[in-house]
Write a protein that binds this DNA or RNA. Structure first.
Length: 201
DNA sequence: GCGCCGATTTGCT
DNA sequence: GCAAATCGGCGCG
């Protein structure tokens, strides 16, 4: 008899994968679950980007650079890396690979699976259709930086959803990164309505 | 519908 | 001082 596998939490082994590009692709279709103060919010991942640490000029950890901000990238796989972008937006990344190898996957867009709270700020774009809108919907802030994704409060599950049309492209907003700016490290579900506007091709 | 630009912290020169 | 893994408001015509 087949085991009923409907909400299978991703485990440490998933996050320790040494190939961060593969992890970025595999995260498409997975569900982020966050439970805090009695509220549960779920969202399906529809767009990601891989950041390949020391060898990647687009990464905060290029050439193994260490700062207060990026120290979290050197944690073990399965850790959340949340940082402030442009002085006002929180961006959520998932650290991968083993400790001291600063690989991470940026969650660029999600499809909301829970209702919006009454106090959700009104916005122009679709809910979750950009990296800062992902953290706004899920209430992810720097308080979650360096926290584990293997707890019961904040984790990712595979519900068996099969992603049909995966597309790839260069990453967004990293034109300064020389040759790395052209690497096909961005993955998204083709024609999904919550992918970053203007980049669904 | 598009392009310009401001917001506002972090990190490097 | 300036640019950054961004977003939304404004002016244009």
């Amino acid at each position: 008899m087949a085991k009923y596998n409907k909400f299978n939490k991703l485990d440490l082994n998933f996050y320790l994968n040494p190939n961060v590009v593969e992890v970025a692709r595999e995260l498409l279709g997975k569900i982020i679950v966050k439970q805090e103060k009695g509220k549960k919010i779920m969202a399906r991942i529809v767009e990601t980007e891989a950041y390949e640490g020391a060898e990647d000029a687009a990464s905060h950890a290029y050439q193994n650079k260490r700062t207060i901000r990026t120290e979290t990238m050197y944690a073990s796989g399965g850790t959340a890396y949340v940082y402030l972008c442009y002085g006002m937006h929180h961006l959520f990344n998932i650290v991968t690979n083993q400790k001291d190898i600063p690989h991470a996957v940026l969650i660029r867009a999600i499809e909301p699976l829970s209702p919006l709270p009454d106090n959700h700020p009104k916005q122009k774009r679709k809910t979750g259709s950009g990296p800062a809108l992902v953290t706004r919907y899920l209430n992810i802030t720097r308080e979650h930086d360096a926290t584990s994704l293997l707890t019961d409060a904040f984790f990712i599950v595979d519900d068996g959803y099969q992603v049909r049309n995966i597309r790839e492209s260069p990453r967004i907003g990293v034109a300064y990164a020389g040759a790395a700016a052209l690497w096909p490290y961005r993955f998204f579900i083709q024609d999904h309505p919550h992918v970053t506007p203007g980049y669904n091709y």
